[in-house]
Amino acid sequence: MRKPRLRRWEAAEYLKLIHGIEVAPATLSKWATNGGGPVFQKINRTPVYPKDGENGLDDWAVRKLGAPRSSTSEMA
């Protein structure tokens, strides 16, 4: 996936393959309406998700995963 911006179904596939985060395209659609998901842009009526840069898919995934922990008792 060399494209800088991905369609919704491609973004879901990218998150699974690169970051191990399984999310359905429908969930990305819901987050686009309610908030909480990665940022997106629109090309006409088509939402596209940037992979790189501030608030891109990679940045969102790192924030979503959080810091590595060695115990469940560690503070969030």
Rank of each mutant, 00 (worst) to 15 (best):
R2F: 02
V39C: 05
M75L: 11
A26D: 13
G35M: 10
T33F: 02
L17A: 12
G56D: 08
P68F: 10
Y14L: 04
A67F: 12
W9I: 08
G36H: 09
N44K: 15
K16V: 07
G20T: 11
R69K: 15
R63H: 13
G37T: 08
L17V: 08
E13L: 10
S71I: 09
R8I: 15
E74R: 09
Y49K: 04
K3Q: 06
I21M: 11
I18W: 06
G53D: 07
R69Y: 07
E10Y: 03
G53V: 03
L65M: 15
V39F: 04
G53C: 09
A32T: 07
A11E: 00
R45E: 14
V48E: 12
A24F: 05
G56M: 08
P38F: 01
L17S: 11
N55Q: 12
Q41R: 08
V48Q: 07
K3L: 10
K30N: 09
N55E: 14
G66E: 02
P38G: 00
V23G: 03
A11I: 00
G56P: 00
F40S: 02
S70W: 09
R45S: 14
S29Y: 03
E10N: 02
G20A: 11
P47H: 06
R69G: 02
E74I: 07
H19Y: 12
D58W: 10
N34C: 06
W9C: 06
P47T: 05
